[in-house]
Amino acid sequence: MSDEKMKILQVYRSEPNSDVQTLVEILNRDRDADEFKLYVNNPNYDTLFQKIWAADKTVCWW
């Protein structure tokens, strides 16, 4: 699997601060990036599960 095609999922447990945004921007560069916000009302866990399963790597931020 080439690095460029890595599917990376960014999950946020709270609203990301500027540090997290900077790190995510670097991590997502040249990758197939997706995200999921857990801090919204009633997150859809089936959708989260599907995204995790589709991703090569998941990062779940604070």
């Binding site: 690095d3 900077t22 790190l23 670097i26 991590l27 990062v59 604070w62």
Partner: peptide, 22 residues
């Protein structure tokens, strides 16, 4: 630096934001 950390973590297999935010 934050940018250096981001670049290093591109090579990470696992990233663990631990516990709670600041």
């Amino acid at each position: 630096t934050l940018e250096e950390l981001g670049e290093k973590m591109r090579e990470a297999d696992v990233i663990i934001p631990y516990g709670l935010p600041k």
